[in-house]
Design a protein around this nucleic acid. Sequence first.
DNA 1: CCCCTGACTAATA
DNA 2: GTATTAGCCAGGG
Length: 107
Amino acid sequence: MNKFYADVYELAALIPEGKVAAYGQIASMLGNPLAARQVGYAMNAAPENLHLPCHRVVNKKGEMLPGSAFGGVEAQKKRLKQEGVIFHDNGCIDMKKSMWRPEFTFR
DNA sequence: CCCCTGACTAATA
DNA sequence: GTATTAGCCAGGG
């Protein structure tokens, strides 16, 4: 497993409930603000044995991956909302309040 | 070994 | 405001 994937998985596993992280955000933490694509790709390839909260990792729009979200986008939203994530009326996550910002992380 | 594709983002027109 | 382009890394053909 390459370091990139390892970092992505490790970081993703640290996402607390009620918070969400953007691909670009994670990528920035890894030192590659432009590698958001690979972060998503890593998530896609993420083994389920790691139990990564990939449903808490969303794009900048604040939505889960359309077409790739488990069970459907709305189901995901409902689940996240249940965990404490704030949503806008338009259905997008309130990144301003629900974005994961760990102080112990760099960025 | 080379080329294409892929859960994205930010900048520019 | 939306549409287009470039950049990242890894895996598959």
